[in-house]
């Protein structure tokens, strides 16, 4: 699919995130080289690619934690300059505040002056319920398993009700069974909240399980190889014919340039 078609004016209205010719270098390595794509309002968009393709940098740029060297990121039509409560970030290694309990972590964003919640305590309870952590409200992160920690990470990001949820390989450190359950829970939450999700992963199965659309990236420098729509009913069955086809399609996109290089 051609990129100029994605950013054409008739798509502008539903466009939530627009990444325009973003490039970024760290010292000598070119992390991102001229990346452009957009994500529609309410869309679940997965970004897959080999390590070093700059997918984390891309996510951090959308979050406003990294500035691009050139190009820009627009969220709701406004250029991103700083982090903001409209974009929640879920980290691969959870990044929970170890000195705060589950409740304290979830509450962190709600206690900021920029956030207005009528009844913060009720909101925290609602989120604990949403991610299934009843009974662990007063536990510290060290007492939780990886899957539970990431549930806290998700709840903490959701607490301030961001329009966009950015997820950086959030389930990379949890076991396969827990990951399957978290996938189902995440899709439930997404269905309830209707947020726009950008989900970075290197796991093709995970991308096809979750995404409306998969952006395939290539490394050195990070560029968009192609975008592939996944028009499958949810919940998706990994052994289903269509599922396997989509995985194969992405694998071909990912694999071919790497093969020719070696």
């Amino acid at each position: 699919m051609a990129m100029n078609e994605m950013s054409s004016t008739d798509q502008e209205s539903s466009e939530k995130i627009s990444i325009r010719n973003v490039s970024k270098a760290y010292e000598s390595t070119q992390a991102l080289g001229d990346v452009s794509f957009s994500v529609s309002e309410g869309e679940f968009c997965c970004v897959v690619g080999p390590s070093g393709c700059g997918k984390t940098t891309l996510l951090r740029t959308i979050a406003g934690l990294d500035d691009p060297d050139s190009g820009s990121v627009l969220v709701g039509g406004n250029p991103v300059t700083d982090p903001g409560l409209d974009r929640g970030l879920v980290f691969q290694e959870y990044a929970l505040f170890p000195w705060r309990t589950v409740r304290g972590n979830i509450r962190f964003g709600l206690d900021r002056p920029a956030c207005e919640c009528a009844d913060c305590e009720a909101r925290v309870r609602e989120l604990i319920d949403l991610v299934g952590l009843e009974g662990f409200e007063d536990a510290y992160p060290k007492e939780l398993s990886g899957g539970m920690k990431q549930r806290v990470g998700i709840a903490r990001a959701l607490a301030v009700d961001p329009e966009i949820l950015l997820m950086d390989e959030p389930f990379g450190s949890v076991d396969a069974r827990t990951r399957d359950r978290l996938h189902a829970e995440l899709l439930d939450i997404w269905a309830q909240t209707g947020q726009t999700v950008v989900f970075v992963t290197h796991d093709i199965d995970e991308a096809v399980t979750l995404a409306d659309r998969v952006v395939v990236m290539d490394a050195d420098p990070g560029t968009v190889q192609s975008t592939i729509s996944i028009d499958l009913e949810r919940p998706r069955e990994r052994t289903a014919h269509d599922f396997v086809d989509s995985v194969a399609e992405i694998r071909t996109e990912l694999g071919s340039p790497v093969d020719t290089r070696h």
Binding site: R60, A63, G64, L65, D82, P83, G84, L85, R87, G88, L89, F91, E93, A95, L96, F97, F108, G109, R112, P113, A114, C115, R156, A157, V160
Partner: peptide, 23 residues
Amino acid sequence: SSELTDAASTLGVERDLSMLKLV
């Protein structure tokens, strides 16, 4: 850890003094 300060930034901590106190 810069991850913790990043997390705090995305959760609305803007001022340096708040970051010092909270993180």
